[in-house]
Design a protein around this nucleic acid. Structure first.
Lengths: 151, 151
DNA sequence: GAAACACCCTGTAGCCACTACAGGGTCAAG
DNA sequence: CTTGACCCTGTAGTGGCTACAGGGTGTTTC
C-alpha cells in the first residue's frame, strides 16, 4: 500500500509518517518504480504501536526504547515496567500541577468585582503582584508533561 | 539597574528577559554609554506580571492581551474575565485528558505479569493493538494546555 | 598597567513533535 | 491533453525558551 492508504488506515497524517521514518521509528519501506513508498502490514502494526504510545503522551525517545524491546524480545521486560511507571509518575505530577493551577485561576477569577473600567479590575491588580511562592517553587525533577496549550 | 540585577530580583533568566523584549512584551529600556540595558522599577513590575501569568500557563499571546488592558485601563474589563474563563476551561479540559491518560497507563501497567522475557510482555502486546477509540476521539476544540513532557 | 574575571552585547541555532509549504514528478479518468 | 489526486524532497515555521559563538565593558587584584 502507498503512504496515503497507510495514513487512512492508521489515522496518522502522511507528513507525520515520513517524519517518523526520518526519526528512525519506522524502517524505510520498499519503493515503487515511481519512487513511491510501499508499505506492508508490519509497517501498519508498528505505526499503530507508535500512535498508541503517542496518545499516551510518551515522547518519541520513550517510544524508541519500547520499540527496542519489541524488536529484541529476548531482553527482560523489567525496564518496560520501569518506563511505564516513570511515565505514569510524570503524568500524575502534571495533574497535580494543573490542579493547583486551576485553584489559582479560580481564585484569580473571583477577584473581578464587575467594575466596567479595567483600571479597577482586581484580576489585573492581582497579576501585578509577585508570583506566590507555592507556584514558583521548584518541584524536584522536571515533569516532562506539557501544560495547557496544545493544538 | 542592569539586566542581571533585574533577573535576580524577578527570578527570570537574563536570556528570557531579552526574549520578552524581542517579543514586545517588555518595552525597550534605556541604555548606558556601554550599551547596557538600564531598567527601572516599572520594568520589574511588568516582568513580574508576565512571569506570574506564565506560572498560570498562559501563552505569551494571552499575556499580551492582558498587558493591553493593563496599559489602556479605560477599556471595560469583561474581556479580562473572558480570557481567564477560557484559560480555566483549557486547564480543566487538560486535567480531564490527563486523568484519562493516567487510567490508561495504569491499566497498561497491570498487563505485565512478571515474565522475564519481553516477547511475552503484556504491555508490549497491548501497545501493539490499535489505539482504543476513547483515546483517539477528537475532543472538540484543541486544548492548548501542554501534556506531560516539559523541562 | 596588565591580566583575570564577571558581566554585558548581538545573532544564531537548537529543543520537541510535528505542520505547512514550495516546487516538482506520476498516474488514471474524462 | 488536461485536470486532479496523489506522491516526492527539502526547508521553514510553531512556542517559549535555552545555549552557544564571538565579541565588548568594567572592576579587582597583582
Amino acid at each position: 500500500m502507498k503512504i496515503g492508504e497507510l495514513a487512512a488506515r492508521t489515522g496518522c497524517p502522511v507528513e507525520t509518517i515520513r517524519y517518523y521514518e526520518r526519526e528512525g521509528l519506522l524502517p524505510e519501506p520498499a519503493r515503487s518504480s515511481a519512487n513511491y513508498r510501499l508499505y506492508a502490514e508490519p509497517h501498519a502494526e508498528r505505526l499503530r504501536f507508535i500512535r498508541h504510545c503517542r496518545t499516551l503522551d510518551m515522547t518519541l525517545e520513550e517510544i524508541r526504547t519500547l520499540l527496542d524491546y519489541h524488536d529484541r524480545p529476548r531482553q527482560p521486560c523489567n525496564a518496560v515496567n520501569g518506563l511505564i511507571d516513570d511515565h505514569l509518575a510524570h503524568v500524575e505530577a502534571r495533574i497535580e500541577q494543573l490542579q493547583a493551577l486551576r485553584e489559582a485561576l479560580a481564585t484569580l477569577r473571583s477577584r473581578c468585582n464587575g467594575e466596567t473600567d479595567s483600571s479597577h479590575c482586581g484580576i489585573l491588580q492581582e497579576l501585578a503582584q509577585p508570583t506566590p511562592r507555592e507556584l514558583t517553587a521548584e518541584t524536584g525533577e522536571p515533569s516532562h508533561v506539557p501544560g495547557p496549550h496544545r493544538g
